[in-house]
């Protein structure tokens, strides 16, 4: 070994060995045929697409191993399209690789920095231009320009004002009021306390006059989860215990973290789990957060029964439901 291991002159590109297609006419012919076959495959794909689009009904299903029953039309159009595109590309690449010149070429780079004289001239031009404005001397113009520009920035923001209404108290309030009946969702039926067995859970909404016309923005804050436990299972403050009725406890179903529907109720552990970010709430302790990112318990709805024995809210929620927001004033 010697120093020539590291070529001192690295401007020379090593000469590549010629390809089989360069020296062997047979190989060249073969490559040409291969390219033609690939183009033909692409054509077959296009035909398959056309055939499937026109002649295959959309309710025909065929069994494909591993994949199961597949819609024949969707599969035919898809595979046809994939073939027609894929083999077109493969053919072009194969053509380029085997039959087009594979000689590498050298381009030279230039430095991106402009020549010194250009740069000097540029600087000079800019300086002269700036000096011509004489901002430094005309203080009044400078100040008024600044003020105008600052004001100029406001209208574009203001013009977006009518995108939506002001929040007002919408995040703080729900449609629950004292005396609102709890009705099943879907079904819209009022619920007797005796309808719920121990271990039962039911999603309810506040009764409204036109249940078919509920706005989604109401469904985004009104859902409540009713859960029945044995009264002795609760470990609540007397105040919170008074909000339950005969072992039935009601929580907002909207997660206090990011507003997903908290609904995975584990009957044995009496935990509620949110499927979005796995915040876990202990129902027996007033939906206290025992795991996950939620920082607040789920708001509890004060419930009782009315004269007919149907479950009703005794009062509105005493705190905003759903995720936190800046104006949220909680104790």
């Amino acid at each position: 070994m010697s120093n020539e291991l590291i070529p001192s002159d690295n401007s020379a590109i090593p000469v590549h060995a010629p390809r089989a297609t360069d020296i062997n006419p047979k190989a060249e012919k073969r490559a040409e045929q291969q390219v033609a076959i690939l183009f033909a495959l692409s054509g077959i794909g296009s035909l398959l697409l056309i055939y499937s689009y026109i002649y295959v009904a959309n309710d025909v299903f065929i069994f494909i191993p591993i994949m199961g029953d597949q819609n024949a039309q969707q599969l035919g159009i898809g595979i046809g399209m994939a073939m027609s595109l894929f083999f077109l590309g493969i053919a072009a690449i194969h053509w380029a690789k085997t039959l087009m010149s594979d000689k590498e070429v050298v381009n030279h780079r230039h430095e991106f920095r402009s020549s010194d004289s250009d740069r000097e001239e540029f600087v000079k031009t800019v300086k002269e231009g700036v000096a011509g404005v004489e901002l430094g001397r005309r203080k009044l113009i400078k100040r008024s320009l600044g003020a105008a520009l600052a004001l100029f920035a406001l209208p574009p923001v203001l013009l977006l004002r009518d995108l939506g209404p002001l929040p007002k108290k919408q995040l703080e309030t729900t449609n629950w009021k004292a005396g609102t009946r709890l009705v099943t969702d879907p079904g819209n039926r009022p619920i007797l306390a005796s309808d719920l067995e121990v271990g039962a859970v039911v999603q309810v909404l506040p009764a409204v006059e036109h249940p078919d016309e509920r706005a989604l923005s109401d469904i985004a804050k009104d859902p409540v989860l009713l859960i029945r436990l044995r009264p002795e299972d609760f470990q609540l403050t007397p105040q919170k215990f008074a909000m339950t009725h005969d072992g039935i406890i009601a929580f907002s179903k909207i997660c206090s973290h990011m507003g997903c529907a908290v609904a995975l109720y584990e009957q044995q552990t009496k935990h509620l789990l949110c499927p979005c970010h796995q915040s876990t709430f202990d129902v027996t302790r007033g939906a206290k957060v025992i795991f996950g990112p939620a920082a607040r318990p789920l708001p509890q709805l004060d419930i009782t029964v009315d004269a007919q024995g149907y479950l009703v809210a005794r009062a509105a929620f005493n705190e905003p439901v759903g995720p936190s927001f800046w104006e949220r004033n909680s104790q």
Partner: peptide
């Protein structure tokens, strides 16, 4: 040819 062909390959 290669880059153009590759577009069709990606699409395929």
């Amino acid at each position: 040819a290669k880059a153009g062909g590759f577009f069709f390959v990606v699409f395929g």
